Each structure stands twice: as C-alpha cells, then as structure tokens.
Computed example of a mutant assay.
Amino acid sequence: MVAVPRKPDATPIVVLVSGSGTNLQALIDAAADPAFGVRIAAVGADRDGIEALARARRAGIDTFVLPVTDFPDRAAWDAALAECVGAHDPALVVLAGFMRLAGPAFLARFGGRTLNTHPALSPSFPGMHGPRDALAYGVKITGATLFVVDEGVDTGPIVAQVAVPVHDDDTAETLHERIKISERAMLVEWVGRLATAGYSVDGRRVVPGSAPHPPDPKDIP
C-alpha cells in the first residue's frame, strides 16, 4: 500500500508538460484560489520553447527543462528527472500532457504519487490514439481516465473517470476536443480532492481521504 497524507496547508505539486499546457493552465487557475489547497511548486518539461512553460513563467512558477537528448541514455534522463522533481519536495506529481514514460528511477521515488490522464475509458484504448481508436471501434460512449502512474502505458490504478458521448458526425479531432474539456474538469477536481483529503493506493484501488497521517516510510516506493 502507498499512502499520501492529507496536508494542513497548500499541498505542493510538480506538473510535467510537453506541449501547449491547457491542463496546466486549468491547474494554475484553480490554484489561484487558496481554497483549492494546492501550490504548484514547479513545472518541468522535456523540451524548451513550448507554450506550457510560457504559461508557468507568466504565473511566476519555477520551471526546469530536461531534454532527453542532453543525456547519454533514457536511464540517465529518468534519474535526472527524479532529482529535479524531488528538489521541489512535491506531495504529488501531475503529468499534464507529458509525452514521456516514467522510468524505474522516477517510479522508485514517486510511484504512487504521480497522476496522469488518458483520453479514453481505461482499460479500453490505451496509447497515443485513444479517441481515434474509440471512434474506429464504434463505441457510443468514451471519455477520460485519471490514474496513478505505474510502469505500463495507461495501466495504473484508476482514480476517476468521466464519460463523453460519441456523436455520429464526430471525427477523431472533434471527439478529442470534447474529451479534453471533461478531462480538464476531472483533473482539477480530483487533484484538489486528493491534495486536501489525502489518499491511499491498495492494489488497484485508490481510496481518497484514507491517509490522514504521514505514511510509514516503508510504504512509500
């Protein structure tokens, strides 16, 4: 079991990004209200010159950039990512459009405390093209999933899901845009809830509000 305790003050999080940062912006906007209970301690990226970093800098949030090409291999990059994130001592790490898989060094430090979203109703349609694959399969309902990151691709324990209907005239692009709207709302709601109430991960079950005290260090990966 992994337990993330409730914090009496604003819970520090680190957000990792790779693109335009619309999910990040939703979190920035929510964190402007003290009642949200979250402080974005830093935003990290795997490449520079992206709008997500510009959003963070405009909001006065610390940023760091770690291109994979700056390291001899993925393992070295993964270890450096864990160090950079750890320097900000986050209770939670949120992958907001971050297009890199977390590796062993990162998960050893932040496993159970890293959240990501997927634009499909897991376990269906994992991978890069969830909306396209859902449309091709002919489903009538798809949606978005918030999950705790593990070593797989969109396979971690599920925190929350939201349903989005598929319209007859949808394209992969129009469907994905509607999913993103629901995805952002779900992300903001649950990051706030988990930050203020704490949670535990027991197997595949994520239980909000179940870690009111600091966890035993042996329970944290």
Rank of each mutant, 00 (worst) to 15 (best):
A56Y: 01
V94H: 12
G60D: 08
F71R: 09
C84W: 00
R55P: 03
R58C: 14
A54S: 03
G49I: 13
A54P: 06
A91W: 02
D73N: 13
P90M: 11
L53T: 01
V93D: 04
R57E: 15
P72Y: 01
P72M: 01
A45Y: 01
E51Y: 06
A79K: 10
R58Y: 00
R100F: 08
A82M: 09
I61D: 03
A91M: 02
I50D: 00
M99W: 06
E83G: 07
E51L: 10
L81D: 07
V68D: 00
A79M: 11
H88L: 10
M99A: 14
D89V: 04
D62E: 10
V68P: 02
H88E: 03
A80C: 01
D89T: 08
A54E: 04
D70A: 15
L66I: 04
A96M: 09
L53P: 00
G49R: 11
F64E: 06
V94Y: 04
A75D: 15
V85R: 03
V94M: 10
G60A: 13
H88I: 06
E83W: 00
A45D: 01
D73W: 06
A82K: 07
D89R: 14
D48F: 13
R100E: 05
A91E: 08
I61C: 12
P72Q: 09
T69F: 13
L101E: 01
A75S: 15
